[in-house]
């Protein structure tokens, strides 16, 4: 466990000043900032929305539609590919693999850092959504604070659900990133699968393409509990992809 903590702390330092770290920050705040900008520019409807008692629910649905369907899967594709690419781009695998740390600890530390970055992004998104609801009342004196209190549990549950939906994407991108030096391969495959996932939302068996899970969570299908279906498949896929990535990493003949 100690080895994992040291590896994690070393991996964490690598994201400093990196494109992946900036993308996490921008990805988490982008949708709330756009929504806030739109709300501030639509002053006429602000009063009604703040006194409706439905503000947080409306913001939740609108925010997650953009975040869950579009930004989160694309962000996970980009950040995961970029973070692994750091080792290839800088030719540092060989130095990493001559340190006295087990390959297992190195592998899971890298994976854990990406996972924590995803959590960071979701946390930022939620804080951003909270501000999106509050800031207009702070700026305009005639706009009251939202009538109802912030439904923390709903936002946490929603974040966990979309986190689960993103895990197979993260796991497959991690596997693809380890497979090849060429950054365009995981990126290209990820984008293609994302498009396939979005197209597959209306398909009866759309749940077999994990890149569309964010969108599928919004799709209501009669007689099907989409949440259970998606989370079950997401967990299964994640385990399979991570196991494959781990085996591939461990058995790679040339670790330079």
């Amino acid at each position: 466990m100690n080895a994992f903590i040291y590896c994690f702390s070393s991996e964490w330092l690598k994201k400093k000043h990196s494109a992946a770290a900036w993308l996490t920050l921008a990805g988490g705040l982008f949708v709330p900032l756009i929504l806030l900008f739109a709300r501030l520019n639509n002053k006429k409807e602000l009063y009604a929305s703040h006194t409706s008692g439905q503000l947080w629910k409306t913001l939740y649905t609108t925010g997650w539609q953009y975040m869950g369907i579009l930004l989160l899967p694309l962000g996970v594709i980009l950040v995961t590919s970029l973070f692994i690419q750091v080792e290839f781009k800088n030719n540092t695998w060989k130095q990493l693999h001559t340190t006295p740390k087990s390959f297992t600890a190195l592998f899971f530390a890298k994976l854990a850092v990406i996972l924590v970055m995803l959590l960071q992004c979701l946390l930022l998104f939620n804080v951003g959504m909270l501000l999106c609801g509050m800031v207009p009342a702070w700026i305009y004196v005639q706009i009251p604070l939202p009538k109802e209190s912030f439904p923390l549990l709903m936002y946490v549950k929603g974040s966990l659900l979309f986190l689960m939906a993103s895990l197979p994407v993260l796991a497959l991108q991690f596997l693809l990133g380890l497979l090849t030096k060429n950054f365009l391969v995981p990126l290209g495959v990820g984008m293609a699968l994302y498009v396939a996932g979005i197209i597959g939302v209306k398909w009866q068996y759309g749940y077999i393409i994990p890149y569309g899970y964010g969108a599928l969570l919004f799709a209501r299908k009669p007689g099907v509990d989409t949440t259970i279906l998606i989370t079950s498949w997401a967990v299964g896929y994640s385990i399979v992809f991570i196991a494959a990535a781990y085996l591939l990493y461990l058995t790679k003949r040339d670790k330079a």
Binding site: S10, L13, S18, V86, T92, Q95, L96, T98, P100, A256
Partner: peptide, 25 residues
């Protein structure tokens, strides 16, 4: 060890590069 070209994180300073490896060692 130093095998072939040096292995450095180009987005980090010299001190930060060493810190990455110090945590591993």
């Amino acid at each position: 060890s130093l095998i072939e070209t040096s292995s450095l994180y180009s987005h980090l300073s010299a001190r930060e590069n060493l810190e990455v490896f110090r945590r591993l060692y």
